[in-house]
């Protein structure tokens, strides 16, 4: 970490997070929205690693492992929901399923 300035690395994490956010807000295909959420989670984890290596503490990496496990659980449930959505509505467009039942 001695060579790489912290603010450059944090800027990278912020840019990646912004790209993921733009993806979630602009795309209407639900698979691509889920991928954008993955980019955002990755950027958040990167910020944890940067902070952890800035203060030479292992806590940042511990948090990254937590984020990793959370992303895995989130993706499995999200993809199961996508499969169910496609079987029932035959579409992946989130605008077409804006009615709740019950």
């Amino acid at each position: 970490m001695s060579q790489i300035p912290v603010h450059y690395a944090m800027l990278l994490a912020a840019i990646l997070f912004a790209i993921g956010l733009i993806g979630v807000l602009s795309r209407r295909n639900i698979i691509l929205m889920l991928m954008s959420v993955e980019i955002m989670l990755n950027a958040a984890g990167l910020a944890f690693i940067i902070a952890g290596s800035r203060w030479l503490q292992p806590d940042g990496q511990v948090m990254f492992i937590f984020i990793l496990a959370m992303a895995a659980a989130e993706v499995s449930v999200g993809l199961a929901l996508i499969v169910q959505m496609y079987q029932q509505h035959k579409t992946l467009d989130v605008n077409s399923i804006n009615k709740m039942k019950g």
Binding site: A72, S76, V77, A80, V83, Q84
Partner: peptide
């Protein structure tokens, strides 16, 4: 993670 596995199985 366990809840994720069971939830994914149940939903899909």
């Amino acid at each position: 993670l366990m809840a994720g596995i069971i939830g994914a199985y149940h939903i899909s």
